[in-house]
């Protein structure tokens, strides 16, 4: 059983962070970040060609983390691999001890840095979860039996609390759970009120939900995210705080910490997933300030 699963099932407030592989072959920075966070987080996500940008695949960094004694959450999108390749990579990852998987649809190839790459989308997030569940049941997507022990995975997926219409999003959430998702990580949360409205609808489902935390770096970055990143809605009062601060990065860390503390105090989630996006050195200070 993975640390992450143990954390949820023991009732602990779970924490994950994430790191992206390099656009190259040197993964030492990511490994050192992972090792520094090892005793603070329950697991560390490794992104899969995040933003449709070509990098070393998640699979490689996931193995590096396991070798360094850090538990990974392997992200897998449907954008670049057929169902055969997805299941093959899952089996190979399981052979190295990977348990936590996070299934995502993935951004379209056309928005990334290899726009002529074929957008595969053979399976969507629900299909990826289903394929992983089939492997856990000892069969592949063609219905063929696996040889030897079946892999043991702990399956996760994503949620967008600000999605509209929310009923449609909840319908897909239910499909993800039916296909095997046990935990969710959400898009960045900035408004407790708005997140609470989402949880009033989502808490009826049997799963663990980690609220997404993306520390803001500046008022400009917050406005950019509001305009360009789907599912992000930074309220004006937070943008004003960043604008009026002499140290906006520190203010962003403080806002993230306050959000985490409020979510925890009001028992609105089972944990948090901190996405520092290239500033992973801020993860521990955020946790310290949040008192977790």
């Amino acid at each position: 059983m993975s640390n992450l699963q143990k954390a949820f099932e023991s009732g602990k407030f779970a924490v994950t962070a994430e790191t992206a592989p390099s656009k190259g072959i040197d993964l030492s920075h990511q490994v050192s970040i992972a090792v520094s966070l090892k005793d603070r987080v329950d697991a560390l996500n490794v992104t899969d060609f995040q933003s449709s940008s070509l990098k070393a695949s998640s699979y490689g960094l996931v193995i590096k983390l396991i070798q360094a004694g850090v538990e990974p959450v392997m992200q897998m999108t449907g954008r670049d691999r057929s169902r055969m390749a997805i299941q093959g990579d899952f089996l190979a990852a399981a052979a190295f001890g990977v348990e936590n998987l996070l299934a995502l649809t993935g951004d379209h190839t056309s928005v990334g840095d290899c726009p002529d790459s074929m957008p595969v989308f053979d399976l969507d997030s629900v299909g990826i979860l289903n394929a992983a569940t089939q492997l856990m049941n000892g069969v592949d997507n063609g219905g063929n039996a696996l040889v030897g022990d079946a892999p043991k995975f702990y399956l996760g997926a994503s949620l967008t609390p600000e999605y509209d219409p929310i009923e449609l999003h909840l319908m897909k959430m239910k499909k993800k759970i039916d296909a095997g998702a046990k935990f969710f990580q959400t898009q960045g949360v900035y408004s407790i009120e708005s997140y609470k409205r989402f949880m009033d609808l989502a808490s009826k489902y049997d799963c663990y939900i980690m609220a997404g935390i993306i520390p803001l770096k500046s008022a400009g970055a917050a406005r950019y995210m509001n305009k360009n990143v789907p599912g992000i809605n930074v309220p004006d009062d937070l943008i004003d705080r960043l604008k009026n601060s002499k140290k906006p990065v520190q203010e962003g860390i403080l806002i993230a910490a306050e959000t985490i503390a409020a979510l925890k105090e009001q028992e609105l989630c089972h944990g948090v997933h901190i996405m520092a996006i290239g500033a992973e050195e801020n993860v521990a200070p955020i946790m310290d300030a949040a008192g977790i």
């Binding site: 449907g78 954008r79 649809t105 993935g106 951004d107 379209h108 056309s110 928005v111 957008p119 989308f121 969507d124 997030s125 629900v126 299909g127 994503s158 949620l159 967008t160 999605y163 509209d164 449609l168 999003h169 319908m171 897909k172 499909k175 898009q187 360009n228 789907p230 599912g231």
Partner: peptide, 20 residues
């Protein structure tokens, strides 16, 4: 759907419009 998704929308729509 630009991704030919079979089970519902991705999280990429912005104000009801496609990310692609």
């Amino acid at each position: 759907c630009a991704k030919s998704l079979a089970n519902g929308p991705c999280g990429g729509s912005k104000e009801g419009h496609c990310e692609v």
